[in-house]
């Protein structure tokens, strides 16, 4: 199934727009989604170093199953 993953911060400058759609098995984990993202990023995959997957409610661990709803890949943060 296709899942849309939103891109933020430096990932918006990867030339892929504000989101990417990746093909994932049903009940995929965050680790599998990161792996699919690396393939989608190709030569720009180093931009994903230090990034985490998150829902609108929480950051996911690599072993977490992807819940329904919004998914985003988040670079290291620097608010304030």
């Amino acid at each position: 199934m296709k899942r849309k993953i939103e891109l933020y911060g430096r990932l918006r400058d990867a030339g892929l727009g504000s989101s990417v759609a990746v093909e994932l098995p049903k009940a995929a984990t965050a680790r599998q989604a990161m792996s699919a993202l690396k393939s989608a990023f190709g030569a720009k995959a180093p931009l994903l170093a230090g990034c985490a997957l998150a829902t609108g409610d929480e950051v996911l661990s690599p072993s977490d199953e992807l819940p329904d709803g919004r998914l985003a890949v988040l670079p290291p943060v620097c608010g304030g």
């Binding site: 988040l74 943060v77 620097c78 608010g79």
Partner: peptide, 23 residues
């Protein structure tokens, strides 16, 4: 989850480094 991109008077802008998020 906030990210800053600085824009300079000279040269390209730059996303600032930060802290990796963890569950």
């Amino acid at each position: 989850p906030v990210w800053k991109k600085e824009h300079y008077f000279k040269g390209d802008g730059r996303w600032l480094a930060g802290c990796a998020l963890h569950r």
